[in-house]
């Protein structure tokens, strides 16, 4: 079963609420690149956490978003770990 929060969902949040260049796809190396390097600042990270919390009903602290969601890959993995915990 596919993860409920994948790159597609992450990309959708970035595109509508935070900002994303038209042709960006988070696959390969880009998925592992830190958000800071991609041009996203701490405010962008807080908005990302806020969107995920609203849409998926999980709780993400400011510390967690800055320390454990540093790249698109980390973000997807971390949110899914939260969702798995929520289900279990």
């Amino acid at each position: 079963m596919a993860d409920p929060f994948g790159m597609t969902e992450l990309t959708e949040i970035l595109r509508t609420s935070i900002g994303l260049d038209a042709d960006v796809r988070f696959d390969g190396e880009l998925a592992e690149t830190e958000f800071a390097e991609l041009g996203y600042d701490s405010l962008a990270m807080i908005e990302l956490a806020s969107q995920v919390q609203r849409r998926y009903g999980v709780r993400i602290t400011d510390e967690a978003v800055l320390d454990q969601m540093r790249s698109p890959r980390e973000a997807v993995d971390f949110v899914n770990s939260l969702l798995a915990g929520k289900v279990a």
Binding site: R15, T16, S17, I18, G19, L20, D21, A22, G39, L43, A44
Partner: peptide, 12 residues
């Protein structure tokens, strides 16, 4: 807006 600035900035 997209003719003048990147999509990464527009929603902000």
């Amino acid at each position: 807006a997209a003719e003048h600035l990147s999509g990464r900035l527009i929603p902000q």
